Amino acid sequence: MPPDTTQLSQAAYDRLKAEYDDLTTRGRIDIARKIETARELGDLSENGDYHAAKEEQGKMQGRILHLQAILENHEIVDTASGGTVAPGSIVTIRYEGDDDTERYLLGSIEERHDDLDVMSPGSPLGEALVGHVAGDVVSYETPTGATLNVELVAVE
């Protein structure tokens, strides 16, 4: 898999595709109307509505390009892992020596849902967790070179 490929569940792909389709049709029409309405107000150099609409247009175009890149370079992954950590899994982990647990969604930031933080499967911890099951203790090396042990408490 090329490094710029984004792993997505089918549900996330469908949601991103719908957002892309909406932004490239209705979104562009709406922003063009806002810009035209603001232009009719007169002097563009001091027209706050015009500048706000142009800024909104720029942000929307940035989101369109981001979505387009994801949709062109994606891989649909099966999130039904049967208890084994895979992209799309929700993992509960506990760091060695710590009593508290942490829950993460393992996947692309575009997969985010609920109030879970997202962990990339390509991160050092994400790579170490993939393929393991609840009860396993996994070691991984941090970017600073330290080795940490993590207990995989649960996989959903």
Rank of each mutant, 00 (worst) to 15 (best):
P2K: 00
P3G: 03
T6I: 02
Q7K: 08
Q10G: 04
A11E: 14
Y13S: 07
Y13G: 05
Y20E: 04
D21F: 00
T25H: 14
R28Q: 15
R33E: 11
K34D: 12
E36S: 15
A38T: 06
R39M: 14
E40A: 14
G42N: 06
D43A: 04
N47T: 05
G48V: 10
H51N: 10
A53Q: 08
E55V: 10
Q57C: 07
Q61K: 07
G62S: 10
I64M: 01
H66I: 04
Q68L: 05
A69I: 03
A69Q: 09
H74F: 00
V77H: 04
V85R: 07
V85K: 06
A86S: 12
G97Q: 10
G97Y: 14
D98K: 14
T101V: 12
S108D: 12
E110Q: 12
E110T: 06
E111M: 11
H113M: 11
D115V: 09
V118Q: 11
S123P: 07
P124K: 00
A128D: 00
L129Y: 10
L129K: 09
V130I: 15
V130R: 09
V130N: 02
H132N: 13
G135F: 00
G135L: 01
V137D: 03
E141R: 15
T144Q: 11
A146E: 11
N149F: 08
V155S: 01
E156W: 09
